[in-house]
Amino acid sequence: TGYDSYGLYKSYPTFDKEEDNKGTLYFRLQNNKSEYKSIDSLINIIEKNYPFDFARPVSRVAKIKADTLSGMCNYISGVDSYIRQKYNDPHFSIKMNGCKTKNKSTGVLLYRLKEGYKVSAILDDSLKNKIYLGESIVRIDGTEIQKLSSERANELLLKEPNGVSKLELKNSKGEVRTVEYTHKDSYKIPSNFVQKTEFSTINDEIVYLKIKHIDKDALYIFLENLPEIKSKKKLVIDLRNNGGGDFLIGAQILSLFIPDEFKYYQLRDKFSGKNEDVIVNKNLSDNIISNKLELRVLVNKNTSCVSELLAYNLKKYFKNTKVIGIEHTAGALATLYEVLLENNNNVKFRTNAFARSIIMLDGKSIEGKGISPDIHVNIRKIEDLQPYNDKVLITAISK
């Protein structure tokens, strides 16, 4: 029978078990092949079972760097790079414990606007007289970045200490110049860039809650501030850069807003194609937020997994909800397994390939698609972004 998660779930699909969707698997080849062959075989099995084949923008020509001479750590790094390029899936990766990670950092960050990449932050004070916020970046170390993904372009900016970066910059007049600089050991991140869970009062009518991760701390901060939330006209829940967390905690948070039993999500059996609902029980406590409250949920492309469930269900069941953002959410809604090599537990895959079921929202998968905002915020300049004037938050306060 399905695991009832301490009574919170009224109904869970009969073909699946909630506790089976978070597990550790051990992989072993019977003929005792080398670790490299074991990893290759495991990748092959995972790829054959991968449930969301090319649901996201990916590189179909990605190849594993088959360099076994440089050691296991370098090989694992190459495999992980291959996985990221081919699948672009936050639930699919590999790492190896004990490998020394290269200390790479950057004093400059970038962001893609409509007309191209712009300097979005300067973390090194010595560069502030050489590079200016909002300048266009044309090339990094000779590589033109216009057609590169944001992740790849930002990777080019990362260097080890004493590494040298060369940026080709273009100002508002179209003038191009080159700036070279040497990387330091590390850079201090300004406080306005640091993401943390916080509750604050914006004015007499509006309160703001930033949730970095869906965990017990997120639930507790709701419960601790429930009296003040209930006394206000509007609550802004900031789920930007929230990578998800605990499905059960997500259901408990939603129950504060949805007192009646509700359909949380569906599971589709990969074998039969049958859909069954995950139903959350009625909230019998006094911890209920009136639907007279205006709710604004902030999202971005890094809002993923359980945080997407929150945004979707609040939009569906809580009548005064508006989802606000620059772009759609990540579209990464899946359960996760850790897969270890039996002969080397330091090598660890994270993958969604072995779950028996696929998570659906009202019969549809949002994998690779995400959730579109009700109110789309157009970012015209770098100062509109969150670390600065935060046009998304301003929109949430005013609408």
Rank of each mutant, 00 (worst) to 15 (best):
S285H: 03
E338M: 10
T321A: 03
K270I: 05
V280T: 04
L295W: 01
V339L: 11
L295Y: 00
D277L: 07
F349R: 08
N346S: 07
S272L: 14
A251L: 07
L254S: 02
K263H: 04
L309Y: 10
L293R: 00
G250F: 11
F271I: 15
Y264T: 07
A311P: 12
N302H: 12
L314W: 01
A334C: 14
L314S: 04
A251R: 06
Y264N: 05
N300F: 10
R350F: 13
A334W: 01
N300V: 04
D269H: 05
N313V: 06
N281T: 09
L314G: 03
S290T: 06
S307E: 11
Y337S: 15
S304K: 05
K263T: 10
L310N: 09
V278Q: 04
S290R: 09
L341D: 08
D277R: 08
N302K: 15
G250K: 07
L295K: 00
N300W: 03
D277I: 03
K322Q: 11
S290W: 05
D246Q: 05
K348D: 08
N345P: 10
L248A: 14
L333Y: 05
N346T: 02
N300T: 01
L295M: 02
N281F: 00
F257V: 06
S304Q: 11
F271H: 13
N281V: 10
I288N: 00
K316V: 03
N302W: 08
F257G: 03
L293C: 01
R296E: 05
A330Y: 10
S290A: 08
K282F: 04
F262M: 07
D246I: 08
Q266V: 04
L293G: 03
E261C: 00
E261S: 12
E261R: 06
I258R: 06
K301A: 13
N344V: 08
T335W: 15
N352R: 04
V306R: 04
K319G: 02
L341W: 04
K292T: 06
D246H: 05
Y337H: 15
T329C: 09
I326S: 14
I324V: 14
L341Y: 06
N283K: 03
L333N: 12
I249R: 08
L298R: 09
Y265C: 14
K274F: 15
E327D: 15
G250W: 09
I288W: 00
L298F: 11
F262D: 02
T351F: 09
A330Q: 11
N313M: 04
F247H: 13
V297R: 00
